[in-house]
Design a protein around this nucleic acid. Structure first.
Lengths: 194, 194, 194, 194
DNA sequence: CATGAATGAGCGTTCATTCAT
DNA sequence: AATGAATGAACGCTCATTCAT
């Protein structure tokens, strides 16, 4: 179990903060080590290389993120509520963890192809969660049955992602969680009248 | 107007190709200079620094991109058609210009905070175009009047962006332009039945 | 006597194998420790530092090497035979101990000046053995009396060393011990006719 | 022609001196650059990497070394004289170029397998020169015809090499060139009386 | 005696930028 | 305007050595 290795977690937490503060490209290994209170070399006892630190940061954080959303969804019966909870939890978690929001929305996208590949792998379970809600909605005749599942997922994820990115870039000038009902209404009802 | 300086355009075009081919991180100034057929130092006669090259690339390309979409929209009367044309032209242009798609969807996001800031500035006119269509739809009672304009714009742009990004990453396995009708239907009607 | 400490010998043997297998530069202390079945730190209980390990390896191995040659020489009366036995035993031992040959002929020469100094110190007793045979040959009027002892020793050692080094680098393609008679003839009779 | 590039030669000369002074392992690129009076990066305009600098040093220096010996040999008719000239020029050149002697006899032997491979490649033409003299001697019935050419060459080269190495390590306490006649006598007449 | 986690100095190489020509 | 040789700061990673247990 990696998690009870204190240094491992120190490094992960330090990395999140350093990336959030300085951006991906200015996140030197030495800076992360310093913030974690360990020697540079110590990082290489717990991680293969710098990229491995970044992937691990994302994996650890997204793992928790997805787990909390899944748990919340599972508490609901109604598929409309499930979608609402997904949106709200998505916003709430990134709202409450400033560093996580910066790291996931902005900094980790500035990565090389290999790293992006890994990030997408970690993201996939979350996309599966979205797919599950959509599928359930279709089965229950709550969502239209002629929907292209892939496009729906892309609309849902793309919308949430864009809303959060804008909120991060606007430096949190408004409350993100409060956007949930309107976003939910938009996604379910669309733009059109009636 | 810088544009009638032939070397300026040579460098811009070379930069797009180099970034699309090699990715952002492997796009050294010397590589761009070589492809453009100029000396390394020449680039600094036309651009302040490397970042300025990249911003200029994005500005030039997005300028054309937005102009074509605006022109197409202006040919239509019906606001529903305008939204459709916006979606279709968005997909069509990125579909037809492989380099542009790679550069805008993936490579230019791997930039430092300053560069991202600039990219967003260039993107703003496009967001205004989207805002215009939405506003018009609301005025004409085609779109609901209780909509939060910002959120709608984020849904529209977020969805288009995510669809294109996925298409780029899936290595163009399917036809992007063909997705337009369904995306249009999704955005206007939402997920729900009736 | 260090030698009855089992760990000491484990480390020496491990070091020879690691150097022979991986080469001098890839012979990290941790690799030697692992092969010896001890902790990294344990090595520092028996040796001052890494260099000390290497010097000790060479000292131990050359000690045996020289002892065996000396013993063999002492079994012979005739000085021509003594020289022959020296040559043959030199070749035989390096022929039979692949690790020793690699370590002495190639890998330990890739060492820093301090270490080379030490290696030469260890080599000195062997040079004394050669000197002894030469001196005896001169006393017995078997070798010419006008010889510069130092140069003779350098010819003998230089020749043996070069023959073995070439054999190691040619990856043992021919039998080293079989070269002994010809080398002996060359050294005693020289190149010239008559 | 690399040779008229002044920086190329500055770097080569600086490298010889730095290696001779500090030893192979303490010859950092930055130290060579400093001594050459160029920036670190400049070295990489003229050499692929650090190893390439070292190989080039050896190649350049050995090229001159071999050429001078060959030229001197060609001035002689008698094969005994040719061998003598080879020995004398070998000693003379290393005697006159302190740095070259240190670099070739000691420091470049402290190199990794790849580099040694290259060094041997550079050395080969010299071994061919020795082979040529031996062969000529045999053809002219000056040297015995039953000689194993390879072993003879190893004796000649091994002896010269060992004599020079000892001279370098003894810090030039005696005159190297003066050793030539005796070494020549030893190689041609061997150790034995009559 | 023995361990092995932790340390941190050290270095080869890249590449954006400059400037003499 | 154009060149391209030269610059030098910056950084990820290794590994010999230490020391608390």
């Amino acid at each position: 179990m990696k998690n009870n290795k204190p240094k491992y977690n120190q490094i992960i937490e330090a990395a999140v903060e350093v990336i959030a503060e300085n951006g991906y490209h200015a996140s030197q290994v030495s800076k992360i080590a310093k913030k974690a209170g360990v020697a540079d070399g110590t990082i290489y006892l717990y991680f293969k290389n710098k990229e491995d630190v970044l992937i691990s940061v994302f994996t650890e954080k997204m793992g928790q993120f997805i787990k909390r959303i899944t748990d919340s969804i599972n508490e609901k019966e109604d598929v409309r509520e499930k979608l609402f909870v997904l949106i709200e939890m998505h916003f709430r978690q990134l709202s409450e963890d400033r560093f996580l929001a910066i790291v996931t929305q902005l900094e980790l996208r500035q990565s090389n192809p290999d790293l992006r590949q890994q990030i997408n792998k970690v993201l996939r379970p979350y996309l599966k969660v979205i797919d599950g809600v959509i599928e359930e909605g279709i089965q229950e005749d709550v969502f239209r049955s002629d929907l292209n599942r892939r496009l729906v997922r892309q609309m849902v994820f793309g919308t949430l992602d864009e809303v959060v990115t804008n909120w991060v870039m606007k430096e949190h000038k408004y409350d993100l969680v409060e956007q949930a009902p309107e976003v939910h209404a938009l996604l379910t009802k669309g733009l059109s009248v009636s």
